[in-house]
Design a protein around this nucleic acid. Structure first.
Lengths: 352, 352
DNA sequence: GAGGCTCGTGCAAACGATTGCGCAACTCTT
DNA sequence: AAGAGTTGCGCAATCGTTTGCACGAGCCTC
């Protein structure tokens, strides 16, 4: 790279030369924690010339010396998945005012990629990591935490570890939704579950089974169909399996909005209307969902708040000497009632 | 922070001690560019023990020495805006395989925030910056480029500067869409323009005016309404202004999908159907758009490709000694025909 | 008035990697 | 076989900041 015009940055040394004090004095004058040990006059003189010369600290140098880079890593599966940008902004809302920068990496749920990216973060000396990747257990992450890197997981917990987790109350969400369908008169309710290796997939499925049993609902084998990914085409595939099973369900509780959208598309293709013939519910309340017809009844998760809470916890771990952090922080969820649920038809609703 | 279990990382010195060579030899053995000056035996021995000990280079140290951090900054307005995640993934698709990490910052189009964040990037010694923030001219950014930091802008150009830009062929997109509406029989076509301070807003508006004149269309003052932001509620506000102007338009060409969605909502509220009463078109073809009814006819922009191209250019600027980069790289756009356009009604279409 | 404070500042050694330079130990040439 | 050239590696300075320690000056105390 030919940097012809590259004028080099102002350093402590430059300020020292300019003010006639030693570089260490400049350093102390610019650090709020140490400037008490200097005379107010020197502090002010240094501060003023630093300002005048446009001094910007070199974080590489200070990080090298102190092992603190004011940089954190965000490990997420895929930023194009609409729930993550909100989480990211929530995280940023607390980190950025404190001066932290975030390196965001996308794992695509590929553990090989995740390993490489975790290395990439470590090489850059991140002060902490917020981990939102979905796979359930990952030795690399546990190892990183064991190395002493402050870490928080969001939307999932790592089993057999004491890494703090921030999660939404998935179980309560599923239970609320099932109760809601029950109250509308539904008795044969299917579940399109998420991937088993994602912790949300597993948690929601288990909550579904438990809530269904608590309500005394019929729950044949065919009632639960698992998807491989949280995507529309998986929703379609799973809904087809469900339809072809022959079980006369009247509603589908989906583990995720995108699965629900896929399911509704399949129903429509088979000549079934949602909600007239089959009620369908989602989970997450992703952005723009309220513009898609039928407007999906779903469980709203506070993505931004989840991100915010996880960042607050990470900051505590990074800065407090003996933080007492709960193993799990669970945030409430809300049922948002829209148009995709109606009472079941009295007559047989299976058209074809 | 109390790092009790923090076992410190392996350094070149550790490997040197282990293999019995000097630390500089280790450094050379591990660098592909310099290992030619060593015997194959030493290189292999160093490489093997580095591998065995799990050596990870300290990028802070190497960055301090070399002024290259293998980190780039991505300046975007808001990651929750659906077009940006795709751009980010496009950028990553070229940067990540090369070993670069990305620090992503959201400016919210606030220049005060942008200044702070640009400083944050500089302090961390990023090797380059991809700048996708929307405001048209920003002295801070020009100053940064002048300082010699490699930079590329996406979706916009900086006036009076030679910073390379990657843009979509907005003008052609507008022209294609207007021609399409014309071919469907529309003659009185309104334009919901984007914010004037965004370069896309300005470019699309200008293209609209030119294309309309070329087609000999009637173009009264009221035909163009400007929005303050690319958001649904601005689309609603602008559409209301348009309706209230009394001009008997038969179609609205919107500068952006979200504006179009807002406009359609207002039409619906006024008892007008899209496309039966008024045709509406979007721009961008954002994710999930095809699920929203009526399915919006729009111009597809290759977000991923835009990101990819900008990253490729940035890499060239960062690594080549005398790169010849075109001032502007323009990527083609495509008209995607869906359901929000129909021929105009012969009769008066103004219901209320 | 001498010894022991505190207070403000300078000194120099880190942090880990890179790299120009120098110096042995070779190989080749004549 | 001696000089010249080459090859392979070590030495030490450097990047910019931080921080334990030392040191001189002033002050107080007995």
């Amino acid at each position: 790279m030919v940097q012809t015009g590259m004028k080099k940055a102002i350093t402590l040394r430059d300020i020292a030369r300019e003010t006639g004090v030693h570089v260490s004095t400049v350093s102390r004058a610019l650090d709020a924690r140490t400037q008490a040990s200097l005379t107010a006059e020197v502090v002010e003189r240094v501060r003023a010339t630093a300002e005048r010369m446009g001094y910007r600290p070199n974080r590489l140098a200070s990080g090298l010396r102190t092992n603190r880079t004011m940089t954190v890593g965000l490990v997420i599966p895929d930023i194009t998945n609409a729930v993550f940008p909100l989480i990211v902004r929530g995280i940023e809302s607390v980190l950025e005012p404190l001066g932290y920068a975030s390196i965001i990496v996308n794992t695509d749920n590929l553990s090989e990629r995740e390993h490489r990216l975790v290395d990439l973060l470590q090489e850059r000396g991140v002060d902490g990591v917020i981990h939102a990747a979905a796979t359930r257990n990952d030795p690399k992450i546990v190892e990183m935490a064991a190395r002493g890197i402050p870490m928080v997981t969001v939307n999932r917990s790592i089993e057999h570890s004491d890494i703090p987790a921030v999660v939404s109350d998935d179980a309560r969400g599923v239970q609320m939704m099932l109760q809601y369908l029950y109250d509308q008169g539904h008795r044969r309710i299917a579940h399109l579950s998420g991937p088993a290796q994602s912790s949300t997939g597993q948690a929601r499925r288990q909550a579904f089974v438990e809530a269904a049993q608590a309500l005394g609902l019929e729950l044949p084998q065919a009632a639960i169909v698992e998807s491989a990914r949280y995507e529309e085409d998986e929703g379609r595939r799973a809904a087809l399996r469900l339809l072809d099973s022959g079980w006369p369900f009247t509603a589908i509780l989906c583990a995720n909005d995108r699965l629900a959208l896929g399911a509704i598309a399949v129903l429509r293709a088979r000549g079934l209307d949602c909600p007239a013939d089959v009620s369908v519910t989602g989970f997450n309340d992703m952005p723009l969902l309220d513009l898609i017809l039928p407007r999906l009844t779903t469980i709203r998760i506070q993505q931004f708040e989840v991100g915010k809470a996880s960042a607050e916890i990470l900051v505590r771990i990074m800065t407090e000497t003996t933080p007492r952090i709960p193993r799990e922080t669970v945030l409430p969820v809300f049922l948002v009632e829209r148009d995709s649920v109606a009472p079941p038809r009295a007559a047989s609703r299976r058209a074809c």
